[in-house]
Amino acid sequence: MKELKSYLSQYENPRILDIGTGKGDFIAMIDYVYQDYSEIIGIDIVDYLLEMDESAFENNPKIKWMDLDVLETTFPKNSFDIISLSNTLHHIKDIKSMFNQMVEMLKPGGIIILSELISSNDLSEKQISHQLLHSFAAKIDHELNKVHSQIFSKENVMQAIEMYSPLPVDAIWELETKSFDEEITLEDLYRLVDGLLKNVKDSPKFEQYKEEAIAIKDYLQENGFSYATTICVVLKKQ
């Protein structure tokens, strides 16, 4: 994670916004490599995830959470030194408006760090577990009429940036996640699968989803878990 630390360290007490923060995975990575920030604000629109966030970081007063959509935020222009978009691109319907909003909120000289899980043909058996979980979550969200695409390829991510981002690419690398792989237990993953299944308990396809959930748990039990390949792309505002 030296590349991430190198970029964060360029700013003195930066104010950071994390968009689509979920349960705070990327914020945890930022805090792991660099603690000299003044504030991190995580925003998302899924209430139960935000509750999990607050309990995970309740002892850190510099980390705050807001139930907000990025396109409905009221932060003034030039509010943040760093904006991160962590595994959220594939959830966004209006990518162009999202990029424009982020650029408005970013200070001159600031950066956007976009991290995105990508599809790959050379995943390990442990990494395939992550891909299976993501695919299952995407199917459940689609059932609930939520925007959640299947995993993008690296080419898809870069095409979206080229098409919609007003800012140039400053750097790109694969994110090192090994330190975080070891913290995830099978029980955590089973709870995730059960939670997703519960969301579609009234669906006519529930039995089909239940069978897939059982198959995923069996695969996890046999192969374990590791994060699939994730790229980081840095965009810099002049």
Rank of each mutant, 00 (worst) to 15 (best):
V46S: 01
G42H: 08
K107T: 03
S79L: 01
D36N: 11
H130G: 08
H90R: 15
F99L: 01
L133G: 15
G42Y: 07
F26D: 09
K93S: 06
N59D: 13
K23I: 15
L106W: 01
I140G: 09
H91N: 13
I95L: 05
N156F: 04
N87M: 11
E72H: 01
N100A: 09
A137Y: 06
M52S: 14
E58Q: 14
E58D: 15
D25C: 10
K154C: 00
G109P: 10
S84W: 11
D36K: 12
I30A: 10
D81V: 02
H91Y: 08
P61V: 09
I82A: 03
H134R: 09
E72I: 00
Q150I: 07
I118C: 11
E51A: 02
M105K: 00
S86Q: 03
I27P: 05
N87E: 11
Y32K: 15
L89D: 13
I140Y: 14
N156M: 07
D31M: 05
H130R: 07
E143A: 12
E125M: 14
I95R: 13
L106E: 00
L133H: 14
N145Q: 02
N59V: 08
S119A: 09
S55M: 12
P76M: 02
H130Y: 08
N156T: 09
I112C: 07
M158G: 01
E155H: 05
M105C: 00
A137P: 06
L106H: 00
Q131P: 05
P61A: 05
E51C: 00
S149G: 07
S119R: 05
T73F: 00
I111M: 12
E54T: 07
T88E: 08
A137V: 05
D47E: 11
S55T: 12
